[in-house]
Each structure stands twice: as structure tokens, then as C-alpha cells.
Simulated scan of single mutants.
Amino acid sequence: MTRVGTAGIERAPENLFQDPVLRAEWDERAVAAPGGDMHQGSAFAADRMRRGIRVVPLYVDGAPLLVTVRRLPILGLGIASISRGPAVKADVAPEELVQIPELLRRVAHWLRREEGVVELRVDPWAQESASLRDAWSAAGFSPCEESFFSRHSMWIRASAVRGQSEEALFAQVNATKRNEVSAARRAGVSVRRLEAPDVVLLANVADIVNETAVRRGFATIDPARTLPTWSDLMRAGQMEVWLAELPDGTLAAVETALRHGERLTSHHAGSRDLGDRAPVGVVPLLRWTLINQARIEGRIADLGGADIAGHRQAPEPGDRMYGLYTFKRAFGASWVEMSGAHRIEVNPLGARLRGALRRVAGGAR
């Protein structure tokens, strides 16, 4: 490892993701530990590398931090990104939270010296506050477009309460959803967990996710790129797949869940359009099963966001995402305001040149 001055920033060993012991140690600290996130782990790093993106794993003040860098051919002029890092505990103290922007500013300037980066974009999973906004500004960061579909999230913290019973948690679900879950059970719908990769089943899951995305007007996933990453995540114990099946074995709905930090996070979901064959409550039963699993593990049930580009506040009646928002609220989820994505230019001239070249080239990053 090479330490740069007294900045407390050093590169991880070059064989980090090839050595199973080093890889497991990294994932334990970057993904499984409190505040950890899948996007800081080895499976996500492998996904980026398959896409031709440079991966730069660092230790910053002794803690792991995964950085990716996209460079222009010949000229370089790289833009670095840090997804969901550094680790931010769900109940982090305010005085710790406001230190994050300065830490990332140090990383940005290190990346300029060592990697030729002109700009750093970050989106740590940090809850919004006035003091954090001030800290971003003081460190030289400004808000930028989100790299994820949603900026905010919806959490059920009650699932993480020690000793919480299934009955008590289920009582917090609204009456309509409780009735739908019960109806699906009476109809013989079963939910099972796929914990190890199964190529055929995962391909079916991706098909259902995409069918649903098309029906709802959302972006689809690319199975050729996504399935290897799902398999890596499952082998690392960071993802599982839940399958809802009808009594005749028909796969009716699916949901993938990420296990990281203090959370069990809903990731991808979808359902078949089965018409009259679909019993009432298939999707609610599937979602409740994930929430109850979070309770069993003592984790926050993170149901994901309900905001989209151009509309980052909580949806209101008539908004496109209002239905999804009310669906999640029906299970007891609360809106969690996040700080969102920020950027800092460490070489303003280089950043402007890169932007001009991107526009000429048609917007390639």
C-alpha cells in the first residue's frame, strides 16, 4: 500500500478482489457492517469492471471506500464516482454526519493527483439536514443529478425493534393490505426464497421485472449485464430473490432484496399480468414476506423510493408515483429524506474541457 502524505488515504492491495480472504474482509466492513451498502462491495466492483469502468478501492482513515473512474480516451480527464459511500449508520450522530463532505473533499483532491480526475460525484446514504447542507457547501460540493432512480427512501424502522413479534408488526399494516395478504394465503399462494443463483430462474425473474417495467413505463434492465451481478451478489450473501407462486406452480411475482448494513432493501420487483388467474393479494403477500424477514433479522425494512427525476418531494394525489408511495405507506413505511448526489470540481478547466468534448461526442460519459 502507498500512503500519500498525511492525508490518511491509501490504495487497497492490487489483488484485493482476487484474493478470497481479502475480498471477504472488504465486504464485511464495506457492506455487512452498520452503514454498509452493496454499492461499496466486491460484487458491485466486478459489475463495474465488466462494463469497462476503472475501479479504485481505497482505505480512507482506515475505512474502505470504493471509487470508480470513467476516463476519456487519450485525454483522460476522468470523472470519479462514489456510490453510497462512505458507510453511514442509520442512526449516525449529527456531529459525525457533517464530517462526511470534508472527508470526500480530501478524497477528491487525492484522486486528482493520483488518477487525473477532474470531478468527483458522490451520493452517500446520508439523511438530509440543514447542518449537512452547510457542510456540503463549505467543502466545495454542490447538488447534482441523481445517479439512482430515487433520491429518497421509505423505511419501516419497526421491523428492526428487538423483540418485535410478527403479529405486532402485521398490525401496523393497514386493514386493506392485511386482508389482501390473508386472501392470497387462503388462495394457496406460496412464497419461497431463492438464496443461491439459479440461471434459469434468475432469467425468469429478469423477464418478469422487465414485463412490469414496460407496463408501468419504467426503464428495463439488461439481463446480459444484470444476471452475472445478481449471481455475484447472491454468492456473497448480499442479495436474495423471493418468488410468489400459485398453487399450480405458476411464478406470479418476484422481488429481489439486498442485505447490507442495518437494512434489507427491496431492489427489483415485478409481477405477471395473469388476468383473472391472479388471486387477490399476491404482491402484498410477497412484500409482507420481505418485511417480516427484515423483522426476523432485526433489520430496517427499506422499501426503496417513490420519487423520480423532476419530482423529488413526497408524491401527492395526482402525481405519477403517488400510487407506489401509498402502497409503501400502507405497510407502515415512512418517508426518509436523503441528502442526495453532490459533485465537486477539482480541476475546473479540465471539467469544462471534458464537458465540451462530451457534447461534441454526443454525451458519452
Rank of each mutant, 00 (worst) to 15 (best):
A32M: 08
A330C: 05
P20V: 02
Y322A: 03
A43C: 05
D248L: 07
T2M: 10
A138L: 10
R295H: 09
L353M: 14
A187V: 08
T289G: 04
V241W: 00
A32H: 11
V4E: 01
P279C: 10
E115V: 02
R70W: 06
L303I: 00
N174Y: 08
F327H: 13
R48A: 12
D61V: 02
N210G: 11
A93I: 00
L246C: 11
R157T: 14
G298D: 06
A30P: 07
V31W: 06
V360H: 08
L169Q: 11
F170E: 08
F44D: 03
L251Y: 06
F141Y: 07
A213Q: 06
D91L: 04
L103F: 01
V88C: 12
R51P: 00
P228F: 12
L251I: 09
E102I: 02
L286T: 06
S83A: 13
I344M: 10
A314K: 12
P124M: 03
L72V: 05
L233E: 13
S142T: 15
G188F: 08
S266N: 06
S81R: 13
A30R: 05
V161L: 13
D222E: 15
P13L: 01
A219D: 15
A139R: 02
A301G: 10
V214S: 08
W26C: 00
A253G: 05
P228T: 09
T212A: 13
